[in-house]
Computed example of a mutant assay.
Amino acid sequence: MITENTTQPITSRRSFLLTATQVVLGLGLVSAPTIACAKAIKKRSLSFVHTRTQQELTLVYASGSAYDRRALTKINRFLRDYNTGQVHVIDPKLLDILWAVKGEMGNKGVYEIVSGFRSPKTNRLLRQGHSGVATKSLHMQGKAVDIRFSGASLAQVRQCALEMQCGGVGYYPRDGFVHLDSGQFRTW
């Protein structure tokens, strides 16, 4: 499935990601371009600020195909349920999606976390007040985050994630966030 544009010079990170994706998907190695491209990079880092707790976190969470267990533990704690304090394992694929989106945004900015992991209790509370909260939300599995990115508009983050087609992309401009998850590609 390598298309003609793969013979043209790679002039941007987006060109590289698209070309690498076409090559990798053509070989049938993976289903998500961020995973393939992320594992080719030596060190991957993320920076967060939590809008509810005001805590900040910056760390390297992976190097090549190896994830740093200590860093993942810190991320799990950081993205805990803001209501109950419950900690849950966060899907590393979700982190790779965040890392790839950050790269597309020029690596300049910090993720502002609106919601990370949500316990069933918190999810039920949110469902009572908002019609858009899913009964079986991927937030409850540690596979979703609601974010803003300080280096780009919500529309830019949404567009970037849509172009990558890795996981779910929900757009909530009135509420001031974009939902990203590591499930199947879908949009709303």
Score class of each variant (00 low, 15 high):
59 L>G: 00
124 R>H: 13
102 K>S: 15
143 K>I: 06
154 L>P: 08
152 A>L: 10
55 Q>E: 14
153 S>C: 00
154 L>R: 03
178 V>N: 09
16 F>S: 10
109 G>Q: 03
83 N>M: 11
14 R>N: 04
13 R>W: 15
164 M>W: 15
77 R>I: 13
112 E>S: 03
84 T>G: 03
140 M>G: 13
126 L>R: 12
77 R>W: 07
132 G>F: 14
95 L>R: 02
112 E>Q: 12
160 C>W: 03
76 N>R: 08
150 S>N: 11
3 T>P: 08
150 S>C: 11
36 A>D: 04
149 F>T: 09
73 T>I: 05
117 F>A: 14
78 F>S: 00
118 R>D: 08
96 D>E: 14
86 Q>E: 15
185 F>Y: 15
176 G>P: 01
139 H>P: 08
17 L>V: 15
87 V>E: 02
34 T>W: 05
106 G>S: 09
96 D>A: 00
27 L>G: 10
56 E>I: 05
61 Y>P: 01
44 R>F: 02
177 F>V: 02
114 V>M: 11
51 T>D: 09
112 E>Y: 07
135 T>G: 14
106 G>V: 10
180 L>N: 01
184 Q>K: 14
184 Q>L: 13
137 S>L: 06
133 V>A: 06
127 R>I: 09
12 S>D: 13
164 M>V: 13
15 S>C: 10
183 G>H: 05
86 Q>V: 15
156 Q>A: 15
117 F>R: 14
154 L>T: 07
171 Y>F: 12
175 D>G: 06
38 A>F: 05
155 A>Q: 15
69 R>A: 14
69 R>K: 15
142 G>V: 10
84 T>Q: 08
161 A>T: 04
117 F>V: 14
146 D>P: 02
152 A>Y: 01
44 R>H: 00
127 R>G: 09
123 N>I: 10
107 N>Y: 12
90 I>P: 06
145 V>P: 12
100 A>Q: 08
